[in-house]
């Protein structure tokens, strides 16, 4: 498996796991009360920080396990990276538009922040899935 493909798997799994943990924490804090009154800011910030730290640590482990292979990333990886970013861009816009609409409707900050966070998470997951499909099933940039 290509180095960048491993990295993509790690990124996708960390993103998914991180978001599920965040949801569990926030919904747990909400208890039987209204969800949008649950304290979410610290949980969101800690989740983002944890995702970054775990992803960086996993990256270092993958580099160490690559056994000093000279070429870790090449032209195909860069093309697949661009393809993934292109695919994910639509979801990012959708998340931003969703948050914009919520702001115009003057809903609670909770929903605006979470719409943006969900948009980022879905963008990352969509990008990762597109890249993994390109690695697994083939990629023809021409």
């Amino acid at each position: 498996m290509a180095f960048e493909e491993k990295r993509t798997w790690v990124f996708a799994l960390v993103t998914l796991a991180g978001y599920l943990v965040y949801l569990a924490v926030v919904l747990g804090r909400a208890g039987s009360g209204p969800v949008d009154e649950a304290p979410y800011v610290a949980a969101m910030l800690w989740t983002i920080a944890a995702m970054v730290v775990v992803t960086v640590l996993a990256y270092l482990v993958i580099v160490a396990a690559s056994g000093g292979e000279r070429e870790l990333t090449d032209q195909r990886d860069r093309e697949i990276e661009r393809f993934g970013t292109h695919v994910g861009q639509g979801m990012l816009v959708l998340g931003a538009v969703g948050a914009l609409v919520l702001a115009m409707l003057e809903v609670a900050h909770f929903w605006i922040a979470n719409a943006l966070f969900l948009g980022f998470v879905l963008t990352s997951l969509l990008e990762s899935v597109a890249k993994l499909v390109a690695y697994r099933r083939g990629f023809q940039p021409w």
Binding site: A2, E5, E71, D74, D77, G138
Partner: peptide
């Protein structure tokens, strides 16, 4: 792959 400066996975692909 070494001669081309790409990864072995790219040669396989």
């Amino acid at each position: 792959a070494r001669l081309l400066g790409v990864t072995r996975q790219t040669v396989i692909a």
